[in-house]
């Protein structure tokens, strides 16, 4: 069953999946890189983005409004969480940060279940993107094609923020050397709050743009979170380019293994992670010294 058409289409699937993983992972990784906090509630924030968007969609009927609402709401949640909780954990051990964000993820998931029930919700793609586009070698859902573009634009925007703005400079400087940022006399807390917001927004944005593909349910973020970890480990913790590269690689591994034996797709993903750990312990594009 391995033929060229199939192979190319699988690569394409991998690309879409990989782009999405890249976006979510970059949110996780810039939060980690700047603040030193691994946000275990990142998957739950992905889910929150979907639900916020769905609520906005049911009231407005507009996909664009849904995307805006999903992203902004999760950004707000990120900022509030940082301000109220995470801030008090910067001086505490990493392990406490993991525990509190793990607890938060349960609270988010169950709060959504409380308000919206367990029945999954669907946000349809915007009108022009409904249907299927023939690509010559295959028929492909138009929205998924568009999703590739949407995610690419989002990643570009994130790149722009990180590499072309003052905030981005500080964030990247923070990733390189957090002591240095302290000495720059910048209000670090303000920056941290913003970074947490932006990182959360990346997850929220991914959550809502993915909703027309995978209908949303309270547990939708859990599986994604584990894959995101693998992406970050492969790419290198704290590295934005690493997250993108890791995402794309993970997407391809899952898709191409599926072509031969889908049962081994995830196992292969973890094998790849192990290989990276053995050969390049800090990830493909990660720098030594960050733990």
């Amino acid at each position: 069953m391995v033929n060229w058409a199939n192979f190319i289409s699988q690569c394409f699937n991998g690309l879409v999946l990989g782009a999405l993983l890249a976006l979510i992972s970059s949110g996780l990784t810039i939060i980690y890189g700047t603040l030193g906090v691994l946000n275990l509630a990142h998957g739950a924030m992905f889910m929150l983005g979907g639900y916020a968007g769905w609520v906005a969609y049911t009231y407005s009927g507009s996909f664009l409004v849904a995307v805006a609402a999903g992203s902004l709401f999760v950004m707000l949640v990120g900022i509030v969480v940082e301000r109220l909780i995470i801030r008090h954990f910067y001086t505490r051990p990493h392990e406490d940060q993991l525990l509190v964000t793990f607890g938060l993820s349960i609270v988010f998931v169950e709060a959504v279940r409380f308000f919206f029930g367990s029945l999954s919700k669907m946000v349809p793609p915007p009108g022009p993107l409904v249907g299927i586009t023939p690509l010559g070698f295959m028929m492909y859902p138009t929205y998924r094609l568009a999703l590739l573009g949407i995610v690419a634009v989002a990643l570009l925007a994130l790149y722009f923020v990180l590499y072309r703005t003052r905030i981005g400079m500080i964030v990247r400087a923070g990733i390189e050397d957090s002591v240095m940022v302290d000495s720059l006399g910048i209000d670090v807390y303000k920056i941290f709050m913003l970074v947490f917001g932006i990182g959360a927004m990346a997850a929220g944005f991914a959550g809502i743009v993915n909703a027309p593909v995978v209908s949303i349910a309270p547990d939708v973020g859990e599986a994604i979170l584990v894959q995101t970890f693998v992406v970050v480990v492969i790419g290198g913790v704290g590295s934005f380019p690493g997250a993108i590269l890791g995402g794309l690689i993970a997407g391809q591994i899952i898709s191409i293994t599926s072509m031969f034996n889908p049962g081994y797709a995830y196992i292969m993903l973890f094998v790849a992670m192990t290989l990276v750990l053995v050969l390049r312990p800090y990830g493909l594009l990660g720098a030594a010294g960050r733990e």
Binding site: M1, N6, S9, G14, I254, S255, P262, G263
Partner: peptide, 16 residues
């Protein structure tokens, strides 16, 4: 696998 979210790989195989 149980808990699959994205079925595109499987559906592509079926499409072909």
């Amino acid at each position: 696998p149980l808990g699959t979210q994205d079925f595109s790989q499987y559906l592509t195989n079926i499409a072909n």
